[in-house]
Design a protein around this nucleic acid. Structure first.
Lengths: 172, 172
DNA sequence: CGCCGGTATATAACGTCTCATATACTCCGG
DNA sequence: CCGGAGTATATGAGACGTTATATACCGGCG
């Protein structure tokens, strides 16, 4: 039940078409949400039917006519209520992480290889995330940097043939 | 398309019932996946129909008979292939983060309040995550600590009435 | 005895998400 | 003039996810 609210949030900054919204979502992962166009279009229609947004058709310089949506007072009210709800941590839902965790049963050489593969993704993403001065973007950069450091530490430990126990513990 | 694979992964350690699997998933968020029982039961049936797991009914000391599933050779093959697929970063999908980002338009006092609310969730979760020595758990602890530090830094900046620009930038 | 709490399985209804596919308009290069 | 790339909207199938609800078995408590 979040996508419609996220869309209201984006629209409350400026009127936009489905296409615009998709672009904004994909360009900034720090926003915390993304969705396919095939999900966005029906969501906008539901918002329209519910009276939370209004629609204005406009010719586009390139391509078929744009459908521009803007938030109505009722939509603004709905958004405000959603924003006021108490927070909760999201349910974990990350197939890559799940695989990384299961791969811990494999032999060190393979684990290092996969950790490096993951590290590569993180590094690319950090490059993409290096601009912007919102709190959400700062958060994302910090998390990516932390994860990068984690991947390096785990790789190094595997290569050194030791395990990463909480510091200061040595057993005979 | 991940839950069935995650379940195969768990079952490849030890045979288990749907209930057991749910408990294991909920107890360790570092595993990267969680799901409801109402999702797990049908998933197990699909795995059974597909021949990826086998079923043995067993009396339980308390409650109705347990249905214990174990991975078949075919299931093990399927799991191996899934684990070998290339990694990809997950699509952002976090309603709390999305709201936190939208709330940046609010006035500082409100933002500090919500940041503190979020900080509380993180602190609780970090307490829960403080045990375990797998790489995945170390990762989760590091991420929670980083996010906690981020929340504190953002709060402090808001309270001090300044903004957190990348260091060293001052404009006339 | 009746109820509660924990174990355990199950399904219906509904909403969300992914993936594939189709259409239409414009500009550009070959 | 044809095809490809970018803009823009749209739909359908099927899987996935959430919430609510139901059932059953056991032990302990009042």
């Amino acid at each position: 039940m979040s996508l419609p609210h996220v869309l209201l949030g984006l629209l409350s900054t400026a009127p936009a078409s489905g296409w615009d919204l998709k672009r904004r979502l994909s360009e900034d992962p720090a926003r915390g949400w993304d969705a396919d166009l095939s999900q966005i279009y029906p969501a906008l229609r539901r918002l329209l039917r519910g009276g939370f947004v209004s629609l204005k058709r406009r010719r586009s310089p390139q391509g078929p006519p744009r459908r521009e949506y803007r938030v109505t007072p009722s939509g603004r009210r709905e958004l405000k209520e959603w924003l006021a709800e108490p927070f909760a941590l999201p349910r974990p839902h990350d197939a890559t992480l799940a695989r990384l965790a299961l791969l811990e049963r494999n032999a060190p050489p393979d684990r290092v290889r996969r950790l490096q593969e993951y590290r590569g993704l993180l590094a690319d993403e950090l490059k993409r995330a290096s601009a912007g001065s919102t709190a959400a973007r700062r958060r994302r950069r910090l998390l990516l940097e932390t994860e990068l450091a984690w991947a390096d530490a785990e790789s190094a430990a595997l290569l050194a043939g030791r395990s990463l126990e909480p510091a200061g513990r040595t057993r005979p």
